Every structure is written in structure tokens, then in C-alpha cells.
Amino acid sequence: MTDIHLTPGTPAETDGTATCCGTATDTSGEAGCCGTATSGDAGCCATTTATSGEAGCCGAATDTSGDGEDIRAQVRARYADAATRAAEGSSCGGGTLYGDDERGELPETALRASLGCGNPLRVAELGPGETVLDLGSGGGIDVLLSARRVGPTGRAHGLDMTDEMLELARRNAAEAGATNVEFHKGHIEDIPLPDGTVDVIISNCVINLSADKPSVFAEMHRVLRPGGRIGISDVVAEDHLTPEQRRVVGDWSSCIAGALSRSEYLGGLTAAGFTEVSVEFTAAYAESMHSAIIRARRP
């Protein structure tokens, strides 16, 4: 095994952009979404470490190797907490990965609930009249921005498994006056849309959270129309980092333990039938792990 020294904790930033969980630490000594408070008080995540085997908002769990339902429970708890805190006025991300013009289009609660590791809309190249699907749509930030870009003749769908996030997203859509959006409850491993009905799939730091990525890739391929494309942001490991080493860096719900390596991503999408597959690292996230843009097309 490669001798690599991994330090758990706050993901790194190299270009000033936020990571999956937003700003890590503020100057007052209180933690941000992922940070550790010097005063002993957590920020928007309430606690940074769990002792029961389930993570807090971004904290390390004592057991990161659970089965799919255990992982879903950890992820659901974390995102339910983030939605509740965003609705109450706390920030777990703040939409810092979006430009001023994009932030100006959105309700404040959508920005507060942003937990992404990138901005997939910068590579999705949405056009008027297209149908777009956001996997793990959270508070709806990318769905609402997509709805503006596809226009009144297009449609923007969001898919999320967390009731609190769906409630927040629908409230944000109403506040934004978006009439061409629809939010669905479900899992990204079993997308509740018909075959061949989507032009573009986007996702922002969510696929790494799934315990069954082959099913996610197969479902993406199924719902896309021929010629349809994906443009997603995710956390991706360098190829030399083993799954065991990834678990040292962080737990599943903090977007690390479940991250694929670059070659695993390329191979998984290719096996699902995608072509023109690419994985581009965009920023450091943790040691030997990166925020990345993933592109592919259904033939």
C-alpha cells in the first residue's frame, strides 16, 4: 500500500471556492459548516463529531462502512438538519460557489442551504426548451437557476430523498415565482421519471453519497434521451488513494468516504453506456481528493 499521510478534518481550498460544506471556520472562533470551533461551540452543524456512528452536518462518524440503508440514514439526517437550519436563518454553505449575478436570482434560503462542491451549471450549457434533472436537488438552488436558463418552454426537475429539503425547495420555488419546476421525492438509484425524457442531468456533490453508484449511472443513462448529456460536480479521489484510505480522511456523509477515484468514475460511466466521458479536477478538497467536473453523453 502506498504510504500516504491523511489528516481528517476540513477539506482544502486552493482557489477561494467553497467545498461541499461551505466555509469551514470564521474568525470569531465559532465553526462554520465543517469547521471545529476553538471555543468548543459548533456553528451551523450543532456538533462536529458523532459517537453513535452517525455524522452530524459534516462531522466524522465512528462507523463509515455501513450498508446502504445505514449510509442513507446518515446522509438524510445531515441534510434534514441543513434544511432546517437554512429555513431558520443559519448558513451551511451560503452559495459561495455562485457568481453575484446567480446569487441575485435566488431566495436567501436557497443560498443558505447550498452544500455543493462546484457549480455544474457552468458546464451544463443549458439551452431554451431543454428538460434538466438535478440529482440531489436539496434546497433547489441549481433547479431554480436551471429553470431560468431553459425558459418557459423548458422544464427543470429536482430529485431529493429528504422531506425537509423538498419542503424548503418548493417554498423557494414559490418565492422565486418559478412555474417550470417540479420537485420529486425519491432516490438517485431509482429515478422516478420515464425513460428517455431528460436532455441534461446535473448534480452537485451528491453522487459520492450513494452506496450503489452503478445503479445511479444506469438510471442516469435510462432517463436521458439519445444524445443527452451530464454535467455534474462531485468529489473525486486520485487513483492511488484506496477506499480504506478515503475513509481515513472523512466519513460518508461529509462527501469523502464514498467518493470514487478518477478511474472508477471513468470506468463506471463507460460501463453504463456513456461516451465522451471526462473527469476534470478543479480544486483541492482534501489530501489527494478534489472537487471535479464530470461530463458524459448518452449515444
Rank of each mutant, 00 (worst) to 15 (best):
M1T: 09
L6R: 07
G9P: 08
G9R: 11
T10V: 15
T10C: 13
A12K: 13
D15F: 12
D15W: 10
T23P: 01
D26A: 09
S28L: 11
E30M: 13
G32F: 10
C33D: 02
G35A: 11
T36P: 00
T36E: 12
T36C: 03
A37N: 08
A37Y: 01
A42R: 05
T48H: 12
T51D: 10
G53P: 03
E54L: 15
C57V: 15
A61L: 12
T62F: 08
S65T: 15
G66K: 10
R72V: 10
A73V: 09
V75Y: 13
A77S: 15
E88V: 00
S90V: 05
S90C: 02
G93R: 07
G94F: 03
T96L: 14
Y98N: 05
G99R: 10
D101N: 07
G104Y: 04
L106M: 05
L106V: 03
T109I: 06
A110P: 13
A110L: 07
L111G: 06
C117H: 01
G118N: 08
G118A: 10
G118Y: 04
R122V: 13
V123E: 07
G127T: 13
G127M: 09
P128C: 03
L135I: 13
D142W: 01
L144S: 00
L145K: 05
V150Y: 06
G154H: 02
A156S: 15
L159E: 02
D160R: 14
D160M: 14
M161P: 06
R170S: 05
E175T: 11
A176E: 02
A178T: 10
N180S: 09
H184E: 08
G186I: 08
D195H: 07
V198T: 11
V200F: 00
V200P: 03
I201E: 01
N204S: 14
N204H: 09
V206A: 12
L209K: 05
L209H: 06
P214I: 04
V216H: 03
F217T: 00
F217H: 09
A218R: 11
A218S: 10
E219Q: 11
M220R: 03
P226A: 05
R229G: 06
I230G: 00
E238H: 12
D239E: 06
L241D: 04
T242Q: 12
Q245P: 11
R246L: 06
G250F: 02
D251S: 15
S253G: 14
S261N: 14
R262I: 11
L269I: 04
A271I: 03
F274N: 05
F274E: 04
F281H: 14
A284S: 15
Y285T: 08
A286V: 11
A286N: 12
E287Y: 04
I293D: 07
A296G: 14
R298M: 05
R298Q: 11
